[in-house]
């Protein structure tokens, strides 16, 4: 408790800041790093992206928490935007113009507009666990019906029919999603 408490006294809100970043890291770090590594093809670059993503999450915690989608979706979208911006900056900027690390070159932090692009993820989060699990196994983990059946402890026939009803439930969830964030 000592260190964090000292932080708390010295920096005002710092203990809370650390807690926020720690909990984001512990919950979403693997997902973020794997995603950034695939997009950048470079573990070191991916780590930089994750770091920047977490810093932005900390700066925009209110947006992140109050957006209608999932925190995971918010973070992944921010990571993707950072990667896109960096790629663009590399393509456009003359190489001799170095970015000064203390002044961020792009103030637009993508805090807005992040919400909708992960609408599917948000909708998936509203499905029942049964429905979501079957889609995750089959679609996102690329499992066969037999593999999914054994992972989920279901007869293969149930996996097939459930995957259908899961898609239908997802369609309903997508349709019900509010178009705008309530302030």
């Amino acid at each position: 408790m000592g260190i964090a408490e000292r932080w708390s006294r010295r920096g005002g809100r710092s203990a809370g800041d650390e807690a926020l970043i720690r909990s984001l890291y512990e919950e979403h770090g693997r997902s973020l790093l794997a995603y950034a590594t695939r997009l950048t093809g470079d573990r070191a670059a991916a780590e930089d992206v994750v770091q920047e993503t977490l810093v932005r999450a900390w700066k925009h915690a209110d947006d992140m928490v109050n957006n209608k989608g999932s925190v995971r979706g918010w973070l992944l979208t921010v990571a993707r935007n950072i990667i896109t911006d960096r790629a663009r900056a590399r393509a456009v900027r003359p190489t001799e113009v170095a970015e000064t690390p203390t002044t961020p070159p792009i103030q637009r932090d993508h805090a807005q507009g992040v919400v909708d692009s992960m609408a599917v993820l948000s909708a998936l989060n509203t499905l029942s666990a049964e429905h979501r699990d079957v889609l995750v196994e089959i679609y996102y983990r690329g499992k066969s019906v037999t593999e999914a059946a054994s992972t989920l402890g279901l007869p293969p026939g149930t996996v097939k029919s459930r995957s259908h009803y899961a898609l239908k439930a997802l369609r309903t969830a997508m349709a019900e999603q509010p178009a705008e964030v309530t302030r």
Partner: peptide, 26 residues
């Protein structure tokens, strides 16, 4: 500046299962 100070957020987040928390209009 900004929203974080106003919110004074300590920590948030994180559903144990699946892909994160669904907040707001949940």
């Amino acid at each position: 500046g900004g929203s974080l100070a106003a919110a004074g957020l300590v920590a948030v987040v994180a559903l144990s299962v699946g892909a994160g928390v669904f907040v707001g209009n949940q």
